[in-house]
């Protein structure tokens, strides 16, 4: 059952990820954004299979919720009609496929010949949300506070960048 779900979610993730970057039917960025949502949701499914329940919830809330709404807002703010007429350059596409495919083959080859993960079985007692929270507020308390500062800086930066007359 777990294996079937893994292959289902993995195939869904990779298929939707491919459709984000190259959709044969349309070049509309909104379609890309929608397929990115699907990719993120199926990744959340993989997180559930890995027993990372809290992260699966955060993934859907933050990515599929907040980030993608932001993306869609910006796409609708901009007038992207002109973009759809442009085509991908064949040379660039071939070079890109060669580069990305080469890296993928190299990494998978290294993985297959290494013994990473051999003999490792999933933990019998997995980290629950409670354990994750306890760890976040004891051992990682300082990074946790610093990350809130990052959010504050990002918020101020966004407000400044959105001002009408950017100095």
């Amino acid at each position: 059952m777990q294996a079937i779900l893994f292959y289902l979610f993995a195939a869904l993730t990779l298929l939707c990820g491919a459709l984000v970057i190259a959709n044969p039917f349309t070049r509309n960025p909104i379609t890309s954004a929608m397929f990115l949502v699907l990719t993120i949701v199926s990744l959340a499914g993989l997180f559930v299979l890995l027993h990372a329940f809290f992260l699966a919830a955060v993934q859907i809330l933050v990515y599929a919720g907040a980030v993608m709404v932001l993306f869609l807002f910006v796409i609708m703010l901009l007038d992207l009609k002109e973009e759809e007429r442009r085509t991908i350059k064949v040379v660039a596409a071939l070079l890109g496929v060669a580069a990305a495919g080469g890296i993928a083959l190299t990494m998978i080859g290294v993985l297959r010949h290494s013994n990473v993960g051999v003999g490792l079985t999933p933990a019998t007692v997995e980290g629950s949300t409670q354990d994750l929270g306890a760890r976040l507020f004891t051992h990682y308390a300082l990074p946790f506070e610093l990350i809130s500062l990052v959010l504050l800086v990002a918020m101020i930066g966004t407000v400044l960048l959105s001002k009408k007359d950017l100095k």
Binding site: L14, I21, A99, A100, I103, A104
Partner: peptide, 9 residues
């Protein structure tokens, strides 16, 4: 690598 391909292409 799909993401990388997207950034390049």
């Amino acid at each position: 690598c799909l993401g990388l391909l997207g950034v390049i292409v």
